[in-house]
């Protein structure tokens, strides 16, 4: 019988050959300063379908990107928020729009895991063309700063083991989501169980930790920055191989003996396959160049997106998506979610 521990090992093995490269150095801007509009394209504002609500991480990153894009090109972009079904509804709607380059899509790593699990039929690496990936971030586990039952990762694990599965952690959990798989691999390694409690909206999720309804929280640092700055929450584990400078005090995976490749959250911008070549080239230039605009860089910094290299051009994005897909595939197979 395959145990949970084996799954962890298997998953680690599956990614061993295709290690997700996370260079510490930031990408350089090698793009030309300007580019002619091909045949007058675009002659009117673009539409951007954002398959999440305006307040969440995707809504925010799309507005920051739109601002930088418009500063750069003078072309407006109308955001069109279509939340629902973990991003699948907006994606389906996007696929119905004509492939003329006037409609672009924002999406996150969920598009990849949904494709692998079969809940979406769109492969973001081949049915879509990634224009740019502009945010790549890691997860952490947080506790309250004034917590007195445990104070760091080691004491948390010891305490959680003693609770016999009754310790609780808040996260967003769809079956097979990035959050759940990362956490599962951590728990398997240490041989303890946490009761995961799913909160689909950020506010209640953070409120649950702050108000003492749950014992810990699984989240990305950019999303809880306010609580970190106020000193309400503190991270006790960073799901990265090595400690990033901003969290030098917090143990990373290498420090606690975790060897699997962590699944990352990434957000980027896409168009449909089939957009005329010259338009595509212009859009690629504009979105990648916008990433390097000072306004966008400043935004990324506030979200801790400068700690690891957040930039991928089209080829880099395809590679990232394919690697991520392989990782999910291996775990899903073992969990029996796919055949």
């Amino acid at each position: 019988m395959v145990t949970r521990r084996d799954i962890g090992k298997l998953f680690a093995g599956a990614l061993l050959g295709a290690t997700l490269a996370l260079p510490a150095l930031a990408a350089e801007d090698k793009l030309p300063a300007s580019m002619d509009k091909p045949g007058g394209f675009p002659e009117r504002p673009l539409n951007m379908i954002v398959p999440y609500g305006p307040g969440g991480g995707s809504g925010q990153v799309s507005r920051a990107m739109i601002q930088a894009f418009t500063e750069l090109t003078g072309v407006g972009v109308n955001p069109d928020y279509k939340p629902g079904g973990s991003g699948i509804v907006g994606l389906g709607n996007y696929m119905a729009a004509p492939a003329d380059g006037y409609t672009v899509l924002e999406h996150i790593d969920d598009a990849t895991s949904a494709y692998v699990s079969g809940s979406s039929g769109v492969n973001p690496a081949s049915d879509l063309v990634p224009l740019v990936i502009s945010q790549i971030t890691f997860s952490q586990i947080y506790i309250r700063s004034d917590e007195d039952r445990f104070s760091d990762w080691a004491t948390f694990v010891a305490w959680a083991k003693a609770q016999d599965g009754k310790a609780t952690i808040a996260n967003v959990s769809r079956e097979g989501s990035m959050e759940r798989i990362n956490l599962k691999l951590v728990m398997d390694h240490f041989g303890f169980d946490l009761q995961q409690i799913s909160f689909d909206k950020g506010g209640p999720r953070y409120g649950a930790l702050k108000g003492g309804q749950v014992d810990a929280l699984f989240e990305q640092p950019g999303d809880v920055r306010g609580f970190l700055d106020s000193g309400d929450f503190k991270p006790i584990l960073t799901l990265l191989k090595e400690r990033p400078a901003a969290f030098a005090e917090v143990p990373a995976m290498g420090d606690v003996g975790l060897t699997f490749e962590p699944l990352m959250r990434f957000r980027g911008f896409y168009v449909k396959k089939g957009v005329p070549e010259d338009r595509l080239e212009w859009l690629q230039w504009a979105f990648q160049k916008a990433y390097f605009q000072p306004s966008y860089q400043a935004y990324n910094k506030t979200k801790f997106m400068d700690l690891i290299d957040s930039f991928r051009d089209t080829a880099g994005a395809v590679e990232l998506i394919n690697q991520t897909a392989e990782g999910y595939k291996a775990v899903y197979k073992e969990m029996g979610l796919i055949k």
Binding site: G85, S173, R174
Partner: peptide
């Protein structure tokens, strides 16, 4: 989608109902 596991309920295969 159910609020805990994100399983599809009564969507009858329509993406719209999924939301």
């Amino acid at each position: 989608m159910d609020p805990v596991g994100g399983l599809r309920r009564y969507d009858f295969g329509f993406t719209y109902l999924l939301a």
